[in-house]
């Protein structure tokens, strides 16, 4: 059976081209999966997630999404379906709500409209009040920023989330909520949703994932729990 996102032999080099950050990496995810990715800092986990959505130039290899090679024209649409969530969320000037509205102005999101109720529902599920919408986005704490950036991406109804330490700035209780929400998000529609979750917290990886992988030195260290399902 083919996987929904397939990376074949992808390679990324540093700008000076003298060193490989990723080399000949194969990776695939299918809908319904929750892949937990752990490994040492600087081992290339973020680089891998960025490479999967082509945020950095690939030196080799290719990415297939639902069976098709992702070509130049399709990249914005592809990224609206397979979305990388940055560890340090970035916002534009303005309120949280203005930031949540912003992606709907993009061509890749055309035909969709901002739904305030939906945004509030996601906020509440993450344990934050609706008043957060009127706050200035650049004044958010690191943790609240992470929550808002999750709401920003969830309201866009992606299919695959690439989460780069999404709870790194959160207290354990809120982290637990985020885990619950994201696990529930995949479980609700296992035939059209999946996530890859990068975390330093081994317990968290254990809790959230159906498949666990160790990534170090730009490669998968060993097929930990390959194919295992929980």
């Amino acid at each position: 059976m083919r996987s929904d996102l397939e990376a074949a032999a992808i390679g990324v080099r540093v700008a000076s081209r003298e060193r490989w950050l990723l080399r000949d990496v194969d990776f695939s995810v299918s809908f319904g999966e929750r892949v937990g990715l752990s490994g040492p800092s600087g081992g290339g986990k973020s680089t891998l997630l960025r490479a999967l959505v082509l945020l950095d130039p690939l030196e080799s290899g290719s990415i297939r999404w639902r069976g098709n090679i992702v070509d130049e024209l399709a990249i914005p649409t592809f990224r609206s379906e397979v979305t990388y969530v940055h560890q340090r969320p970035a916002f534009l000037e303005g309120t949280v709500e203005e930031n949540l509205r912003l992606p709907f102005q993009l061509r890749a999101q055309s035909g969709r409209k901002y739904d305030a109720e939906l945004a509030v529902r996601w906020l509440e599920r993450l344990g934050r009040p609706p008043e957060l919408l009127t706050q200035r986005a650049d004044r958010l704490s690191g943790g609240e920023g992470q929550l808002v950036s999750l709401v920003r991406v969830l309201q866009l109804r992606p299919s695959l989330l690439l989460l780069d330490e999404p709870t790194s700035a959160l207290d354990p209780e809120t982290s637990g909520r985020v885990e619950e929400v994201l696990v529930g998000w995949v479980k609700d529609r296992p035939d059209e949703r999946a996530c890859v979750w990068v975390s330093h917290d081994a317990d968290q990886v254990e809790r959230v994932s159906t498949r666990r992988l160790l990534f170090a030195n730009g490669q998968f260290a060993s097929p930990v729990g390959e194919g295992a399902s929980t």
Partner: peptide
């Protein structure tokens, strides 16, 4: 200076022009 913002937009499906 605004690399994170620009890449956030790109990650959400913005074209390079946007």
């Amino acid at each position: 200076n605004k690399r994170d913002r620009i890449e956030t937009l790109l990650a959400l499906g913005a074209t390079r022009w946007e």
